[in-house]
Design a binder for these strands. Structure first.
Length: 478
RNA sequence: GUCCCCAUCGUCUAGACGGCCUAGGACACCGCGCUUUCAAUGCGGCAACACGGGUUCGAAUCCCGUUGGGGACGCCA
C-alpha cells in the first residue's frame, strides 16, 4: 500500500491571498485530489507583529471563492508553540544548536549591511558557540538568548521534482535562528516541525523557497527524519517580468472576484500558469484538471500574469454557463450595483442575448445596464455620433407611432417597419438603426437591434423611443 | 556582492529517447467574409528556439561559456 499523499498550503496571514499564493494552493489541491490524498491548510502566524486574524480570514475567503476546500485545518502555528520548543531543546541538547547571546540590535541592520558589504566567503554567524556549561550558566542567570542551528561543514543537496537535483555548499548558509530571544520559533523550525508532525509527503510551494530548502533539509537530517518530496513552482511575475506587486494592479484574488471574474475561469486560467497538460487543451474544468494534473507538467520558467487571456477564459465560461448559473451571477452583480431589475420573469431571454458579448459579470451592471433597468443614460460618445442628424427629430416620433399602431411586433415586422420608414423618408436605414440602438441600450454597440426590441418588449421599446424624442427636442438647435 | 535557479512567438505554452519541427496550439494583434453596430463565427496573416562555441551524420532538444532575467541571503514567512 502506497503512502497517502498529504500536502499543505501554508500561507502567512500578513496579507491577502494573492495570485501567486492562490496558484500554489491550487496546485497543491489538484495534486491532492489527483492522488486521492489530503489537502491541509496551515496558517503560519508566528510573526505576531505582522500577522492578523483579518488577513487569515481573507485568505480563507479567497480559498473558498476558488473552491479550494481543505481536508484538515486550518492549523494555526501560534497555537502550537510548545511543540516547537521541544524540537529546539532537543537539538540544543544534542549539540546541533547553540544559544546565541548576541544583542538583538547588533543584528538588526544585518540585511542592508549585507547587501552593501564586500563579498565574503564565510557568512557564518560570529557569535561564539559557547561551551555547554558556560551557556547553561548565562541562560540560568536570565540573560536573553536566541537558539541557532549549528550548520555542519558539508554540502547539502535535495531532489526537486520540478528543478531536479540542487546542491549548495553549507558555507553559504548562516547559523540560522531557530528560536528568537522572545521565545518564538522562526519559520525554518516551524515548517519542518509541522511538516514532519503532519506527515506531509510533498512540499509544493513557490520557487522563492528553493534557497531556504537546504536549511530545512539540514533540520530534517538533524531530526533523523526522512525528507518529504520537494516540488518548487516557478514564480508568477508582472508584465514587466518583475515580481508581481500592487504596481501591476490587483494582486489579491478577491479583487478579481469583485471585478467580475468567475471562480471557475480564474481557476482554469491559474492552472495553466506554469503547468500544461502536455497537449493543446486549455478549456478544462475541475474534473479534467484533476485527472490531468501532474508535477511532471510543471515548467521551470517563471510565468507572466497577463490579463488578456484571463478575460478570454472568463468570456468562455460566461458563454458556456448554464442559464441558472448565469441568472444567479447577473442578479448578484445587479444587486450589488444597486440596480433594480425589471421583469425578472423574462430575464433569461435578455441574458441569452448578452452572454456571448459579456466578458465579466460586471458588464451586466455597466455596459448592459439598460437591459435590466430603465434608469440608464446615453453614452455621451454614442449620442454625439448618432443623434446629430436633424432629420431624427421627425423620424423617431414617426417610428414611435408606427410601432405603436402596428399589429405585430416580431423580429420581421419591426425590421420591416423601420426599413420601410427609412425608404419613405429617403434616409439610410443605418441612421435610424444607430439612433434607435442608443435609445434602447444607451450604447453604441449592442446585440442585434430587432432582437433587442423583442427582448425589451413593445411597451419598453415605445417608451424608450418616446424618451429619445423628448431628448432630441431638448437639444439646442445648431 | 555571494549562492541558487531559469531562458521557444508580445503573453501562456507544446516540444519524453537529438531526426516526425520548413517549431504546433491558445490569447492578443492585423486583414477578408458575414452584418444595422459590436460581439460571435469562417478564412487568412504577423510573430519565437537569447547569443557564441562544442558533441553528432543530424540539436530548440546534450555539454561549456556569455548575456539577460528571477529568487535567496532577517531573532519575516
Amino acid at each position: 500500500m502506497v503512502k497517502e499523499v498529504r500536502v499543505r498550503f501554508a500561507p502567512s496571514p500578513t496579507g491577502y491571498l494573492h495570485v501567486g499564493g492562490a496558484r500554489t494552493a491550487l496546485f497543491n489541491w489538484l495534486f491532492a485530489r489527483r492522488h486521492g490524498g489530503k489537502f491541509i491548510l496551515r496558517i503560519e502566524d508566528t510573526d505576531f507583529a505582522r500577522s492578523s486574524d483579518v488577513m487569515a480570514e481573507g485568505i480563507l475567503q479567497g480559498l473558498h471563492w476558488l473552491g479550494l476546500n481543505w481536508d484538515e485545518g486550518p492549523y494555526f502555528q501560534s497555537r502550537r508553540l510548545q511543540h516547537y520548543r521541544s524540537f529546539a531543546d532537543r537539538l540544543l541538547e544534542e549539540g546541533r544548536a547553540y544559544r546565541c547571546f548576541c544583542k538583538l540590535d547588533d543584528n538588526a541592520d544585518r540585511k542592508s549591511e549585507q547587501l552593501t558589504k564586500a563579498p565574503q566567503d564565510d557568512i557564518r554567524h560570529e557569535c561564539p558557540d559557547f561551551a555547554a556549561e558556560d551557556s547553561e550558566r548565562r541562560a540560568g542567570s536570565g540573560e536573553p538568548f536566541a537558539i541557532r542551528f549549528k550548520v555542519p561543514n558539508d554540502k547539502t543537496s535535495f531532489k526537486d521534482l520540478v528543478f531536479g537535483e540542487i546542491e549548495v555548499d553549507n558555507k553559504t548558509l548562516e547559523d540560522f535562528v531557530l528560536i528568537r530571544s522572545d521565545g518564538i520559533p522562526t519559520y525554518h523550525l516551524v515548517v519542518v516541525a509541522d511538516d514532519m508532525d503532519m506527515g506531509i509527503t510533498h512540499v509544493i510551494r513557490g520557487a522563492d523557497h528553493i534557497s531556504n530548502t537546504p536549511k530545512q533539509v539540514l533540520l530534517y537530517q538533524a531530526a533523523g527524519s526522512p525528507l518529504p518530496e520537494f516540488a518548487h513552482l516557478p514564480l508568477i511575475l508582472g508584465p514587466d517580468k518583475q515580481r508581481l506587486s500592487k504596481r501591476h494592479g490587483a494582486t489579491s484574488v478577491m479583487a478579481y472576484a469583485e471585478m467580475g471574474y468567475l471562480p471557475d475561469a480564474f481557476f482554469n486560467f491559474l492552472s495553466l500558469l506554469g503547468w500544461s497538460p502536455g497537449d493543446d487543451r486549455e478549456l478544462l474544468n475541475r474534473k479534467e484538471l484533476i485527472e490531468l494534473f501532474s508535477l511532471k507538467g510543471v515548467g521551470k520558467a517563471n510565468a507572466v500574469f497577463g490579463l488578456e487571456k484571463l478575460d478570454w477564459f472568463n468570456s468562455q465560461y460566461l458563454r458556456n454557463a448554464s442559464i441558472d448559473k448565469l441568472r444567479e451571477l447577473a442578479l448578484k452583480e445587479l444587486q450589488t450595483a444597486g440596480i433594480e431589475v425589471f421583469e425578472v420573469e423574462s430575464l433569461d431571454s435578455r441574458l441569452e442575448l448578452l452572454r456571448v458579448r459579456a466578458r465579466k459579470s460586471n458588464d451586466f451592471s455597466t455596459i448592459f445596464k439598460a437591459f435590466f433597468s430603465d434608469d440608464f443614460d446615453y453614452d455621451p460618445a454614442a449620442g454625439e455620433k448618432f443623434f446629430e442628424d436633424p432629420k431624427l427629430k421627425e423620424l423617431i416620433p414617426a417610428l414611435h407611432s408606427l410601432y405603436l399602431e402596428s399589429e405585430e411586433f416580431t423580429l420581421e415586422s419591426t425590421e420591416k417597419t423601420l426599413r420601410r420608414l427609412a425608404e419613405q423618408k429617403e434616409v439610410k436605414a443605418g441612421l435610424l438603426i444607430n439612433a434607435v440602438r442608443v435609445a434602447l441600450t444607451g450604447q453604441k454597440v449592442a446585440p442585434g437591434l430587432f432582437e433587442v426590441m423583442l427582448v425589451l418588449g413593445r411597451q419598453r421599446t415605445i417608451e424608450r423611443l418616446e424618451r429619445l424624442g423628448r431628448y432630441l427636442n431638448s437639444l439646442p438647435e445648431k
